[in-house]
Amino acid sequence: MTSRLLVFAIATCLAGGVAAQDLGTTCKVASTYDLTVRPDSLVFERADAAPRSVRMQDGSLTTDGRAVSLRPDEQDRVALFERNVRALVPKAKAIANDGVDLAARAVRDEAATAAPGAVGSGELDRVLNARVADIKRRIAASQSTRDWQEDAMRAYAQEIVSDVAPILTQDVGGEAMALAMDGDLQGAAALRDRVASVSTGGQARVMARLEAALKPRIQALCPSIRQLGDLQSGLHDATGRPLLLLEPGA
């Protein structure tokens, strides 16, 4: 994503596939920075413009390795900015975890339509549960919004779809072969197409379900995101330029 929404990165952990542009319009806040939430500090990083690195730690501010001189009231605002970001993280991860569960259920529904035998055997649920547990562990351990953005969540959804595709193919393989041997080539092809649609179109359908389910929860965090924009107002980097970790959205 060329313009990374902090409302998307912090507030959603990329939990729903909601378009960044849509949330930018809703929350009126955008960011070009990636954020790493460390135990002792917040670190904002980007590659395309200075300051490329911004660090907040207990009311102190450093940009591109240089300490910024702050008045007491500015120190308070930096400390509050950091505290508010940290308060958003567990809310964001909760949405992300729910997003993973919803994605798995959506994929299971896709699979049940394409190959009901795979669901009945229990193998599909075993694979889905293992993948969900793995993704949730990664989200829980993650400190960086690079793991929380829309592209990351889409990748997680694709991992789920990719896990189940071989199971579906195997499940319908025997049935399709039997139909073909009986001369019903059209029926065999239809079975294979039904399974292929889970891999090719399943991700889009899964993300659409996630968007509908999670978008209201994501938007509910917009006031907190906009408050972060208010807190940065008047802050400057070490060279005296206005600090714009968040910028007005479209």
Results as ranks from 00 to 15, higher is better:
101 D>K: 03
211 E>I: 11
84 N>T: 11
144 S>C: 08
170 Q>C: 04
205 R>I: 05
194 R>S: 15
107 V>K: 03
198 V>H: 06
102 L>H: 03
127 V>E: 10
89 V>C: 06
87 A>P: 06
126 R>D: 14
190 A>Q: 14
73 D>P: 03
73 D>K: 02
198 V>L: 05
174 G>N: 10
210 L>H: 01
183 G>Q: 09
138 R>F: 06
168 L>P: 01
108 R>C: 01
160 I>A: 03
85 V>M: 03
151 D>S: 13
74 E>Q: 15
182 D>Q: 14
197 S>T: 07
143 Q>M: 12
95 I>C: 02
163 D>I: 11
157 A>P: 00
178 A>C: 00
75 Q>Y: 03
106 A>F: 04
164 V>H: 00
208 A>E: 12
75 Q>R: 11
128 L>T: 05
112 A>T: 09
120 G>I: 01
163 D>C: 11
105 R>S: 09
131 R>L: 05
154 R>Y: 10
208 A>H: 09
191 L>D: 00
73 D>T: 07
213 A>N: 07
107 V>G: 00
186 Q>D: 13
81 F>N: 03
77 R>E: 06
76 D>L: 13
171 D>N: 10
153 M>T: 10
180 A>R: 09
156 Y>P: 00
168 L>A: 03
166 P>I: 07
203 Q>H: 12
79 A>Y: 00
201 G>N: 10
202 G>C: 03
150 E>Q: 15
134 D>A: 14
106 A>M: 02
125 D>I: 00
211 E>D: 15
177 M>Y: 12
79 A>D: 04
137 R>A: 15
193 D>F: 13
109 D>Q: 11
80 L>D: 09
187 G>S: 07
140 A>P: 06
128 L>N: 03
132 V>Q: 01
179 L>P: 00
81 F>H: 00
189 A>W: 08
155 A>Q: 11
90 P>V: 07
108 R>K: 14
83 R>S: 12
156 Y>R: 14
200 T>I: 14
185 L>K: 04
114 A>H: 00
190 A>K: 11
127 V>L: 10
198 V>R: 01
137 R>Q: 13
94 A>D: 11
142 S>G: 15
182 D>K: 13
71 R>H: 11
120 G>C: 00
176 A>N: 05
205 R>P: 02
86 R>F: 07
127 V>T: 15
159 E>W: 15
183 G>T: 10
191 L>Y: 04
189 A>H: 09
143 Q>V: 13
158 Q>S: 13
190 A>N: 12
165 A>H: 15
98 D>N: 10
182 D>E: 15
174 G>Y: 08
191 L>K: 04
202 G>W: 02
182 D>V: 08
101 D>E: 10
208 A>W: 08
184 D>Y: 07
113 T>Q: 15
181 M>A: 11
125 D>R: 05
114 A>S: 06
77 R>I: 06
85 V>F: 00
201 G>F: 07
72 P>Q: 06
210 L>Y: 01
132 V>C: 02
